[in-house]
Design a protein around this nucleic acid. Structure first.
Lengths: 170, 170
DNA sequence: CCCTTACAGTTCTAAAAACGAACTGTCAAA
DNA sequence: TTTGACAGTTCGTTTTTAGAACTGTAAGGG
């Protein structure tokens, strides 16, 4: 399975990973949600090499996660803002932050707090069932093939390698 | 910012990315939630090279996401199962799957459906505020420094790059 | 006018990571 | 004795990433 194949996999997780599943992309997205919009902003916030940054931004634009919008004409300059598709990544980001808040903080506590404008309180994100509203955990969920399934989800048929492997090459 | 520095960053997202923020790790974790436990199982499901698989599993064990448990003695064999810390990654996985279900499906529809045992229905995961129970979106959340913050969250002071004294010989 | 800075990239080489295939070792069954 | 399942390890090649310098436009200062 190579990376360009990932987006063809019959698995929503594999496809998503094909889009955002690398370290710099995730970090770039974090910056987007913290309102960074410009090349230099990303670069200095992250310390990513300019080369990779340019490449990742291009990829995110191609995939419709970011939109590249001109903000001045003279020397043409653009900024990168989240599309709706990009904004929809928010639950992923929050879930990641929350896991870190739970399992990776040091003595000093959380680096960042999140306040919900609607209720005014600092909160944690909780994932619930869209149908009954109850919080979800892995054990309460049963997974089964949907219309887009191919075989057993994402598990290849066990190809037999017919190697006689007894060669001493040297 | 190098990868070993990532886990020291005052940002729960960066730290989490240091643990699970690469493509194979995420895919390995998907398999874990689909009940794969053994080396060969991961290898044949994912097509990952055995070398990398061994390394990633080791890292996940080191980080307390998986536990390595013997299941037979004669030739010593172990299986890898999720710890509670690992199980707590479930919301991240579900958020990733859900984004894929929303934005990356083809004409045939979702590869996988999720049924909530408690209510018996197929569901989508929804992220809500722990305090008021309302669904969350990026625009309704205000972020501010917590006790573990260093400066502006995750954004480095704008160091004037005069000379990058990283490894220069003087 | 010339020099410097800000910005948004691109280009190049070296170093690190991933790939692919074979190899090691234990044990059970054929 | 040979084969197969399992769980890795080793090694040479290819791909990515890091790191630094370079390109090009334009504004501001002297």
């Amino acid at each position: 399975m190579r990376w360009d194949e990932l987006e063809e996999e019959p698995c929503s997780m594999a496809r998503t990973i094909g889009v955002i599943g690398d370290r710099w992309t995730l970090l770039i997205l974090r910056e987007c949600f913290l309102r960074t919009r410009r090349f230099e902003g990303f670069q200095s916030a992250l310390g990513i090499t300019r080369h990779l940054l340019a490449e990742r931004l291009k990829k995110l634009v191609r995939q419709g996660v970011l939109r590249r919008i001109p903000y001045q004409e003279s020397p043409k300059r653009h900024e990168y803002i989240l599309t709706q598709k990009g904004l929809d990544l928010y639950p992923i980001m929050m879930a990641i932050v929350h896991w870190g808040d739970t399992h990776m903080v040091d003595e000093r506590g959380r680096p960042l707090l999140h306040q919900h404008r609607k209720c005014g309180k600092n909160f944690d994100p909780v994932m619930v069932c869209s149908e009954c509203g109850e919080p979800l955990s892995a054990k309460e969920v049963h997974t089964h093939p949907g219309p887009g399934a191919r075989t057993t989800p994402a598990i290849k048929a066990p190809e037999k390698p017919k190697a006689k492997a007894r060669r001493s090459a040297a």
